[in-house]
């Protein structure tokens, strides 16, 4: 690496780091403000709250009926992960292994939902689902969440499957493996790391997916993030600390899965397919 030693480049270097530091400071401040407020007895016009308490967690858990909301959230999220995992991995396998007429069109179809704002396809889709009688139901929320998560699994898995040598499968065939044992004993173990990464990322994204769930969720099919939105929207009805306690509960559930996901993936994979290859 080349490092310039001049004064100007030194000032420039410090300026860039200062901006980056300032951003992180503000980011930490935003998250800390929520956490501190959720433990505050009273926090008005001072740097820190007067006293600390955990009572808001109990009141938030009761007021917002969080035990059922958390349960429903995980039911929805795991169903979405399961369906998009099964359909996504099989579709990605076909797209990675075969070249067929119209393949580019199919890949484009899987790319589009990630490029179009969720509300643009969410509103027509929600209208269709309401007319089918699925509005406000568990399956309505699951179906609308499949639209961004299925393509995400496909696009993460295609390069992962492409780098598995097809000769391994051919060799297994030569030694007499049937389709079933080929899949169970050869492909599944090889695919597992990629699948785990893709599915954990879908999990994190679905927990945080607000716009689409919001369009279709009813009182019994709300996820945590939608409940949080309604609570913040109607703030003033309930104590701010209670809302922030709920936000912390939401944060903990998201971070748990995020930390688990980060064991398998690079953080930048959450926004994009990993393009980093060490330059040779």
């Amino acid at each position: 690496m080349i490092r310039d030693q001049g004064l100007v480049s030194k000032i420039w270097r410090y300026a860039v780091w200062a901006v980056a530091g300032l951003f992180i400071l503000n980011l930490v401040g935003v998250i800390a403000a929520v956490v501190v407020n959720s433990f505050a007895t009273r926090w008005l016009g001072t740097w820190l709250p007067i006293g600390l308490t955990t009572k808001w967690y109990f009141s938030a858990w009761k007021e917002f009926q969080l035990s059922s909301v958390v349960f429903v959230t995980f039911q929805i999220v795991f169903t979405v992960v399961l369906i998009s995992g099964v359909l996504g991995v099989t579709a990605a396998y076909a797209l990675a292994r075969r070249d067929f007429p119209g393949k580019r069109l199919v890949v484009l179809l899987f790319l589009l939902p990630l490029l179009i704002p969720p509300l643009t396809y969410g509103i027509p889709l929600a209208t269709v689902l309401y007319q089918l009688g699925l509005g406000g139901s568990f399956w309505g929320v699951v179906l609308i969440n499949l639209v961004p998560s299925l393509p995400f699994v496909v696009l993460v898995m295609i390069p992962f499957i492409e780098q598995i040598d097809p000769r391994i499968e051919a060799a297994a065939r030569v030694f007499g493996a049937g389709t079933g044992s080929l899949f169970l004993r050869i492909l599944l173990p090889l695919l597992l790391p990629g699948m785990l990464a893709a599915l954990l990322l879908v999990l994190v994204r679905t927990i945080a997916m607000f716009e689409l769930t919001f369009l279709i969720a009813g009182p019994t099919s709300q996820t945590l993030v939608v409940s949080l939105y309604y609570a913040v929207f109607a703030s003033g009805v309930r104590a701010g600390q209670s809302i922030d306690a709920m936000a912390v509960i939401y944060m903990v559930t998201t971070l748990f899965w995020l930390i688990l996901a980060l064991q398998f993936v690079n953080p930048s994979q959450i926004v994009a397919r990993a393009k980093q290859q060490p330059a040779s």
């Binding site: 992180i24 401040g29 998250i31 929520v34 994204r205 945080a208 607000f210 913040v232 936000a247 998201t254």
Partner: peptide, 21 residues
């Protein structure tokens, strides 16, 4: 890892935090 936090927490959480911050 720090920078990926706000993306995964989402806009609703960030909006709630910014209201206080």
């Amino acid at each position: 890892t720090i920078l990926v936090l706000p993306i995964t927490l989402g806009t609703v959480f960030v909006a709630d935090g910014l209201l206080t911050f």
